[in-house]
Amino acid sequence: MKRKRTPQSSSKGLSRRRFFQWAALGLGGVALGNAFLREPTALQVERVEIPLPKAPAGRQVRIVQLSDTHIQEFRPYSRRVAEAANALQPDIILLTGDYIEESRNLPGALAFLRLLQAPAGIFAVQGNWEYWARIEGEPLRRHFEKIGITLLINQRQDVEAGGMDLSFFGLDYPSRESDLMTLQKQVDSRRVNLLLSHVPAFNHEGLDGSIDLICCGHTHGGQVRLPFLSPLYLPRYTGGFVSGLYRVGPASTPLYVNRGIGTSLLPVRFLCRPEITLFDLVGKARG
């Protein structure tokens, strides 16, 4: 008489299912820990070379861009960002807005900005959070002047660095189409011309080819990214420009979007590390 076999498949299936459940929970916990604890301060330097046919060969200018610091109070991370930026030995530092979220955060932001060093100057534009905090315009300009930073509100500033003549144009937030037109009328095409704009989405069709590089922020790179998917959230005036280098307008002007230093809405980043951008402007003209 044959013995009946006791079925084993149900217990094996249950243990296998439990294993995958625990594995998924473990991976989820690791991802959450990374997103909230590690990645928001896992600073990354992105290096971008911009060739300049109008500048003499052999000439080079180093520019660091910082954006969207969203400082609430001065912390060790703020000091680490400043030290990392200074260690790149930039000739010039560009700041593209959203330094604070409330007016009471201004002392912490100024403490951070005071640490930055660039021999040829530090130039800045305002972001939407400065307007929402009601610390924009002349009051902010005066605070910045005291610590050696030039705030450009639809203005031009000329400097010389690395044997190049450069002009910086600050497109204010919010900007009108006429503001870009007015700035472009001030452009000297013989100089190297950089436009600072907090937001990447503005009238690119109005660009006439006289600007050599546009530096923007605002998007935080999406802040939370999932593989093969678009960002879960992007703020208004992003226009599909998330992070990195793009070409815009009739003349394919280079536009760079910095992922930012801080976080907004939630203190979280996932697959989207905070960024310091280092631009090497390299002369290519012969003779």
Rank of each mutant, 00 (worst) to 15 (best):
P40H: 03
K12Y: 15
S264I: 02
A118G: 05
I149M: 04
A109L: 06
L234M: 15
D158M: 04
F36Q: 06
L281Q: 10
Y77V: 12
R225Q: 15
E145W: 10
P200C: 03
D68A: 07
L113N: 02
S15W: 12
C272Y: 03
P119Y: 05
D212I: 08
V199L: 06
T263P: 05
V64T: 03
I149S: 03
L255H: 09
L66A: 09
R191S: 09
G283F: 01
G29Q: 14
I147S: 02
Y99I: 09
S210W: 12
G206T: 03
D91N: 06
F241L: 13
E145F: 08
P254F: 08
D98E: 03
I211D: 00
Y246L: 02
R38Y: 15
P267C: 00
I214D: 04
I92E: 07
A251V: 09
P40A: 07
E145Y: 09
I63E: 02
T41A: 10
P107M: 04
L180A: 14
L207C: 11
E49Q: 15
F123M: 08
I50M: 12
T182P: 04
R79K: 15
R47F: 01
L152N: 01
L166F: 00
G217W: 08
S252H: 15
R190W: 08
D208W: 11
L183F: 07
Y246K: 02
F19I: 08
F112G: 08
L271C: 11
